[in-house]
Design a protein around this nucleic acid. Structure first.
Lengths: 214, 214
DNA sequence: TAGATTGTTAATCGATTAACAATC
DNA sequence: TAGATTGTTAATCGATTAACAATC
């Protein structure tokens, strides 16, 4: 059974945001904060913050507010950031490299254990101390090392071909930078976080054009 | 006045998705599609698709459905992808480089006209034929070239410092990869598309842990 | 004309906001 | 105790889904 059944995706998506602002508050030496102050800081409403947090437990204290450090720790635990889910990165092009080098996987619940690419010029190079393997080795690697997470920094067609296999080899979560819509294909056996940069950019185009066409 | 007043953000965010699937359908030689078929393909409901599209106009035909190519063109026009909003990229580290090299700005409504970094080792290098300028030149560049969009691939602190200036120099839209929450600071004078990769990763952590903790 | 499918209104559902009693 | 602020319930709002008349 899930630890927190019935948590909506809207609530889930706000938790990392809270976590981020709490870290900032800690860095600034703030010890306690009320939902009203926190709302002002984050641009949300106090009601929403209290209700969101209460999905997971009563972390505040009436008349006082929330202890910043304690709440930060709680949310980290809720998000399972102390776990080390074995993770592979597929595609070591521009984007794969940036993601591999830029993210702090160990602080966010993941451990990068393998990197794969189809380009022979890239295979053998090291990223963060991990040697890039040929995509041909991916099956044996997965069967042996049982990654739970796959990060897809590959083109649409490659993602479409590979994703079924990955699911078959036991991958449960995808961080998907490809244009392939995994969730449509694999339903709710798996969890997919899409980062559709192109969609985001087109959304920006629409919204800015709405703003400036006055 | 905005061209399409009252369009919700939820609807806006689905438009690029439709655009993407329509391009795919065109590539596969599909000429027409009903809302029911399109719903199955995209994982949405037929009702939602019809209602979304009708926010912008009646693009379908009773008894027939939607012409794929025509609808694709319409959505491209709605999203203003044929515009060339002058755009600068700030931060040419791992992530900035990947974004600069990976995205097809010209197909999505933008024209990259300047790249800036504070690292002297990076300044002078070329990315997509554009010379990386020193961050010290950014004010004069902005006053002269009037970029409308800024892509922020810089740390939180740098974003906090710079964003006010950029708004002052006329930047209206931000594609924000930094951890700084621009929208909180600058309200609705500007449009911000956040790409909080860390938040996305933490959300994945939570969701996968919920899935596997059975 | 008959069948199909849209455009659009009405019903439902879920998420956000407001209110306030509980309590530190 | 009095003031502050949470936890939680009720009210509102918006988004999604269902239904169906219009029409190609």
């Amino acid at each position: 059974m899930a630890r927190y059944p019935g948590i909506s995706l809207s609530v889930t998506r706000r938790m990392p945001r809270y976590y981020r602002f709490l870290a900032e508050l800690m860095a600034n030496g703030v010890e306690r904060i009320s939902s009203r102050e926190f709302a002002e800081l984050t641009g949300l409403t106090a009601s929403q913050i209290r209700q969101d947090l209460n999905c997971f437990g009563g972390f505040g204290q009436q008349g006082y507010g929330y202890n910043v450090a304690a709440l930060h720790t709680e949310i980290g635990r809720i998000l399972s950031l102390d776990k080390r889910l074995p993770t592979i990165l597929i595609g070591a092009g521009n984007l794969g490299l940036a993601v591999g080098n830029h993210m702090k996987f160990d602080e966010q619940g993941f451990q990068l254990i393998g990197i794969f690419d189809s380009n022979p010029q890239v295979v053998g190079q090291e990223i963060q101390g991990i040697r890039v393997r040929s995509i041909n080795e991916i099956q044996s690697f997965c069967l042996e090392n049982r990654p739970v997470i796959a990060i897809l920094c590959i083109p649409r067609s490659a993602a479409a071909e590979l994703s079924g296999d990955l699911v078959g080899w036991g991958v449960k979560g995808f961080w998907n930078f490809s244009h392939y819509d995994l969730s449509v294909a694999h339903g709710d056996q798996i969890v997919v976080e899409n980062v559709h940069l192109g969609d985001s950019l087109m959304t920006l185009s629409f919204r800015v054009n709405e703003l400036i066409d006055q």
